[in-house]
Design a protein around this nucleic acid. Structure first.
Length: 871
DNA sequence: ACGCTGGAAGGAACC
DNA sequence: TTGGTTCCTTCCAGC
């Protein structure tokens, strides 16, 4: 995943990283040989790892063309077995850097991303033996990216006490790859932190929901601004730009080194030093820097080092890049690294908080997990990788021995399996630097931690024993999803570690790309054994998480708004709920053409008297062309200043007389991709959803690799969703099944309602194509009512996840309360409708009509290759 | 005592 | 080139 950095205003989306030398194919990993065997207990492995760009919705998302050619991993190739694909070794992409890639990471630049890593956090200070596994998983103990050749050094600094947890949750967590995972013993979950690029794509999905990610904390008593007091409420806010995507490492909050803070350095590092700031930086810092470790591993061993050569875990990625790739100069010698512990040979399962049981499963029989030793250092997926689709519309079925690389897009749903994030992480989670102590695990908005679940809609639950595994280049935390736990995993062991930009730059050999990479997503991938040595791999991504200190404090966030559409005549009152609104916050509506150019821009009139820090009440401006015959997709954002814009939100202007054809105009085409997200920097917090190329042939934007390749996963997503979206309200369960994972009786969701949100927050300026999801169709999902407390704002439904209607209904429906956001249902289908009702009731358009229209539109989409729309 | 947080200082990068 | 602004990173302090 490349991290894309977007510049706020311009929207320009840049692929920052495309250069990984090699894309480490990270598998989600695990070693799961057991899985290979059919007899192996069927376990679903959940891997948290790098961000596959495609989060849940990834599949069809068009990505910006990578600036550079090359992708991480080659597309899967047909496996011997019909219908099965096997991944091929990642192709290393060298950018100029010398180094070869043979090893994978080795030579050239490995990663360009700025990075923020997600490292696993050990749940408990003293992780039991299980932790060790994690350690492995995490790779090195060294905080830094580069783990010892052996592989996992303990991430923890000295900590790794011998038997102790191998990795310390501490910030440094295994820093190998840009992304780390944490896993609990039981479930194998690979968490990936995705960078923005990914996000952009993901965002699109998210955009559906339009609403920003849920803000966790509601404002305490918001008070209305008064003419005189507006500012008094807020101090001068430092201008903060929107965060940009960056690479984050998930780190386990676990035990931190004895001295959490490194002795730092003498002072702050100075960038000025010859270009290599990092070098300048105090060596003492514990953060493992990219490069130099004291004991640098001479040459990074090939990725899979840790594993047995002979027995790659099922989840291993074939092409894992070797750690070596990182140029030495990039490496830092930090005490930390020096400390890197060798990875234990046999990692114990981590103790996960996840339900467990899984340990056994987790641990490969007899063997240590497959950790990928080499991964240590950032195997940051290159942006390119993410940006390109490697798979072209094939089923996500792989051989256990050749799991898809982490950078491969995967659908969040396949047939009857669906991976969804039931409880999204909070929109903000301040990442910690290596020089800092852990800032804890990512939390869920409602409190608690993110929860992911694999749902088998029909029938039997997927039973599988899984174990944690580490994937090359990327640390993956694997967890086994067990029926007894409802196939759900509570991700409470993942924190986010941000690498210094200077370190990142070193890797890249560049010095101008480190700023503003502060948004990441958690990516979850699950491998469900299918027997016969095959697995179905699905993945999903969380809402974007803003990791910077400032942005979290200064950027306005729109959590919900209502209505989501109104007549082109405007004049309706629109209420936004969110956070960081200021007395002088502006709300600007914009429309972009297929080429991404701004076609219309109008500032709305904000009713200050009815606004406060968490609520903005405004009057929708009149659309520029009142004679449109079709709904027009536009976007709006809240601006607290030049570089303080909220992610864009979707809004639709309806023709005065509306009742005709499907929305094919701007609303659809212009959608994320076509029109491009309004602003490069803006991102939707809505959950990612499976991309669907709405009009690929018509929009150049779709020519991204993904599209061009016809990549489209997640069949279900492709179709209009009729059912209500899953509730994303924290804590709210989406599925009825109480006891287990068994599925609901209901059929899988057949269709989804396209959402209007632009997803492409990142279409940065300059970016030819919109980053948004291809199919962002308008989906009017109606945001929660303003009255809803911010924190209660629903999380964006899982992106790609299309909840099965039935399920969603059963649980979600009841939960709605008056005053709360519109029911999920509305969001997905009703929401849209609600928009109409609210906005244009006079027009006589019914919800059903709207749905029908949308459905027709979508029906026009080509079905994913080889897949048929769900019944 | 340790870990997690929030806040802010200092300085580099950017405009 | 200079000055102001913005952002990054480190450090401090409180809970």
């Amino acid at each position: 995943m490349g991290a894309a950095s977007c510049e706020d205003e311009e929207l320009e989306f840049k692929l920052v990283f495309g250069e990984e030398k090699e894309a480490p194919p990270l598998g989600a990993g695990g070693s799961g040989e057991e899985l290979d065997s059919e007899d192996a207990p069927p376990c679903c492995r959940l891997a948290l790892g790098e961000p596959p760009p495609y989060g849940a919705a990834p599949i069809g998302i068009p990505r910006p063309p990578p600036p550079r050619p090359g992708m991480h991993s080659p597309p899967p190739r047909p496996a011997p077995s019909p219908g099965t694909w096997e991944s091929q070794p990642a192709r290393s992409v060298r950018l100029g850097g010398p180094g070869g890639c043979s090893g994978g990471a080795g030579g050239g630049r490995v990663l360009e991303c700025p990075s923020i890593r997600i490292t696993s956090i050990s749940p408990t200070p003293d992780p039991p033996a299980t932790l060790e596994d994690n350690a492995d998983a995490w790779g090195d103990g060294s905080p830094r990216d580069y783990p010892p050749p052996e592989g996992f050094g303990g991430y923890r600094e000295a900590g790794g006490q011998g038997g102790g947890p191998f990795f310390s949750p501490s910030p440094g967590s295994s820093s190998l790859s840009s992304w780390s995972f944490f896993s609990d013993a039981s479930d194998e979950a690979a968490l990936y932190a995705a960078c923005d690029e990914v996000e952009s794509e993901l965002n699109e999905a998210a955009s559906r929901f339009g609403l920003g990610s849920p803000l966790p904390s509601p404002r305490a008593s918001p008070r209305p601004w008064t003419p005189d007091d507006p500012w008094s409420l807020y101090g001068p806010s430092p201008g903060g730009r929107g965060p940009e995507d960056s690479w984050l490492l998930l780190s386990a909050p676990g035990p931190t080194p004895a001295s959490p803070r490194p002795a730092s350095p003498c002072g702050k590092r100075r960038y000025s030093s010859s270009g290599t700031p990092s070098s300048a930086s105090p060596a003492l810092s514990r953060r493992g820097s990219l490069g130099e470790e004291g004991p640098e591993p001479p040459a990074p061993p090939p990725l899979p080092l840790a594993r047995d050569p002979g027995s790659p875990g099922p989840f291993d990625y074939v092409g894992a890049p070797p750690a070596e790739s990182i140029p030495q100069k990039t490496r830092r010698t930090s005490s930390e690294q020096a400390v890197a512990l060798p990875r234990p040979e046999e990692p114990a399962p981590c103790n996960g908080k996840l339900p467990s049981g899984t340990e056994e499963a987790a641990a490969p029989p007899g063997g240590p997990r497959k950790e990928v030793a080499g991964m240590d250092y950032l195997a940051v997926p290159s942006p390119l990788a993410w940006s390109k689709a490697r798979i072209g519309g094939h089923s996500p079925i792989f051989r256990t021995s050749a799991l898809p690389p982490l950078d491969w897009p995967l659908p969040s749903q396949y047939e009857q399996l669906e991976l969804r994030i039931e409880v999204q992480p909070r929109a903000h989670h301040r990442a910690h630097y290596e020089t800092e102590g852990s800032r804890g695990a990512v939390k869920a908005a409602p409190g608690g931690h993110p929860v992911v679940k694999v749902h088998r809609i029909t029938g039997k639950m997927v039973a599988t024993a899984s174990y944690e595994a580490v994937v090359s280049g990327t640390k993956v935390l694997e967890m086994t999803l067990l029926p007894e736990n409802n196939m759900a995993a509570n991700i409470d062991c993942a924190g986010i570690l941000k690498l210094r930009n200077s370190d990142i730059e070193l890797r890249k050999g560049e010095t101008d790309i480190g700023r503003k990479n502060t948004r990441v997503r958690l990516v979850f991938r699950v491998h469900v054994p299918q027997g016969s040595g095959k697995v179905v791999s699905v993945q999903t991504a969380s809402v974007p998480i803003e990791c910077s200190q400032r942005s979290a404090q200064e950027l306005p966030q729109v959590e919900a708004y209502s209505p989501s559409a109104c007549s082109v005549r405007g004049g309706e009152e629109l209420v936004l709920t969110g956070s960081n609104f200021l007395p002088d916050s502006k709300v600007v509506f914009i429309e972009r053409g297929p080429d991404g150019k701004l076609q219309w821009e109008e500032e709305a009139t904000v009713n200050r008297l009815q606004s406060n820090e968490v609520t903005l009440t405004l009057t929708v401006p009149e659309y520029s062309n009142k004679r449109v015959s079709r709904p027009v997709q536009v976007y709006f954002y809240v601006s607290n200043g030049r570089r303080k814009r909220s992610p864009t939100q979707s809004f639709k202007f309806l023709p005065v007389i509306f009742k005709e054809e499907p929305l094919q105009d701007s609303s659809l085409r212009g959608f994320p991709s076509a029109s491009g997200p309004p602003f490069g920097t803006d991102m939707d917090f809505s959950p990612p959803r499976p991309p669907y190329p709405s009009y690929p042939h018509e929009d150049p934007a779709y020519e991204t690799p993904y599209l061009s390749e016809g990549f489209s996963y997640g069949t279900p997503p492709l179709y209009p969703q009729t059912g209500p979206p899953p509730s994303y309200r924290p804590g709210l369960r989406m599925f009825p099944e109480t006891g287990g994972t068994t599925g609901c009786a209901r059929p899988p969701p057949v269709s989804f309602l396209p959402r209007p949100f632009p997803s492409d927050p990142y279409g940065g300026r300059g970016s030819p194509f919109p980053l948004g999801l291809p199919f962002s169709t308008p989906s009017p999902f109606r945001p929660p009512l303003p009255s809803s407390p911010p924190n209660e704002a629903p999380f964006p439904p899982q992106s790609g996840v299309h909840p099965s209607p039935a399920e969603g209904y059963s649980e979600v429906g009841p939960s709605y309360g008056p005053g709360e956001g519109a029911p999920e249902q509305e969001k997905s289908r009703g929401g849209y409708g609600s928009g109409f009702r609210d906005s244009v009731p006079i027009q006589g358009i019914t919800l059903e009509e709207v749905s029908e229209i949308i459905g027709r539109d979508l029906s026009g989409f080509p079905a994913p290759p080889g897949e048929e729309p769900p019944a």
